[in-house]
């Protein structure tokens, strides 16, 4: 079988019109007047560049010569006959039909969504629970320094009040982590911070920080206990570390997907990353709220106390319609609705 095309000897840039001849696994290239430019050799000593769209086909010889042709049909016959580039031919088939492209597109979406929803969280959880406590403490150290040295001023709470809350906190920790040796060094710190308002944070090491404003806002000790259970859940479920790991996962995924066109705009990477990460964060908040309900139901306490402080905490933030999409916390009404739903389900099994 003959294929017409252009030939380059690999020594100069000169192009020559030639015929490529293949017979039973042996090939050669004949130039003008049938003068052989490449002598008969085995086809498997040559490299056939896989088909790519309708771009020109190329065969490279072991001696550095190159044969080019636009004869797509001839090249397809040659490849089929010799059984080379089978997997690349499959890829070409995928690339050349709109139907298969559509299937790939749907597959892409399904896989990406599955990975974001289940893959990344599962992998992150797996890693997070295997990290030694030393690393968690290290990670907390810097955040703790920023919090205590820059943001927080010394607490102005009455010492008796602080001690009362601490006693409840120790009780909660004991009941939640059980008698088992807990790896966390749980401690509760108070501080005054205008910039942070009424707020509480949990660091991976087990340090929980509560602002005076939050204590001042509470009307009942149950409310504070609710917040503390929520924060303890962040620690024991390693939410902070999982968050870091998931962000890394999302970043890798998004850059894998848009990496090629990322130079076009940074926005293409940052917006989806932001949306996905805030979605994860909301799931952690929901999980921590869930633990509050579990604990309150177990103790036979009314979940309304926790609802009240949630309402008061978020009253100032005012939900902007549609903003829950990018918010790190779920909307207050959604949270409260969830609390009631879980509480009802648990008390009446």
């Amino acid at each position: 079988m003959d294929i017409k095309g252009t030939f380059f000897d690999g020594k100069t840039a000169r192009a020559v019109d030639v015929v490529f001849r293949a017979e039973g696994g042996r090939v050669m290239v004949a130039g003008e007047d049938n003068i052989p430019l490449v002598h008969w050799c085995n086809l498997d000593t040559c490299t056939i560049a896989p088909r790519l769209g309708n771009t020109r086909r190329v065969i490279r010889f072991s001696g550095g010569q190159r044969f080019e042709t636009d004869d797509q049909a001839g090249m397809a016959d040659l490849e089929a006959g010799a059984g080379v580039n089978r997997s690349f031919f499959l890829i070409h088939l995928l690339e050349s039909h709109w139907k298969s492209v559509l299937v790939c597109f749907v597959g892409l979406l399904v896989f990406a969504v599955g990975f974001v929803r289940y893959g990344i969280p599962a992998i992150s959880t797996h890693i997070a629970y295997r990290l030694p406590q030393g690393i968690l403490d290290q990670a907390s150290q810097e955040a703790e320094e920023v919090l205590t040295k820059r943001l927080l001023k010394p607490s102005t709470l009455a010492p008796e009040r602080a001690e009362e809350i601490r006693a409840r906190f120790r009780e909660l920790v004991r009941e939640i982590t059980g008698d088992m040796e807990s790896p966390y060094a749980f401690s509760l710190a108070f501080g005054e911070a205008k910039a942070l308002g009424a707020n509480a944070f949990a660091l991976p090491s087990g340090t929980i920080v509560m602002t005076d404003q939050l204590v001042g806002m509470s009307e009942d000790i149950r409310e504070i206990q609710g917040v503390l259970v929520h924060e303890i859940a962040h620690v024991t479920h390693r939410h902070a570390v999982r968050n870091i790991l998931q962000s890394t996962g999302v970043f890798v995924l998004v850059s894998l997907l848009v990496g090629d066109g990322a130079s076009v705009t940074g926005l293409a990477v940052s917006i989806p990353t932001l949306l996905l990460e805030s979605g994860y964060s909301r799931r952690f908040e929901t999980e921590a709220d869930r633990r509050v309900v579990d604990y309150f139901v177990k103790k036979g306490w009314d979940i309304a106390a926790y609802e009240n402080i949630l309402r008061r905490l978020t009253a100032k933030e005012r939900d902007i319609p549609g903003s829950s999409f990018i918010s790190t916390h779920p909307g207050t009404e959604d949270r409260i609705e969830n609390l009631r739903k879980w509480a009802a389900r648990q008390s009446a099994p």
Binding site: V101, C104, L108, F111, L256
Partner: peptide, 12 residues
């Protein structure tokens, strides 16, 4: 078409 197939295969 090349791009979509590339993304799909890269992800899977």
């Amino acid at each position: 078409k090349i791009w979509i197939v590339n993304l799909f295969l890269t992800l899977v």
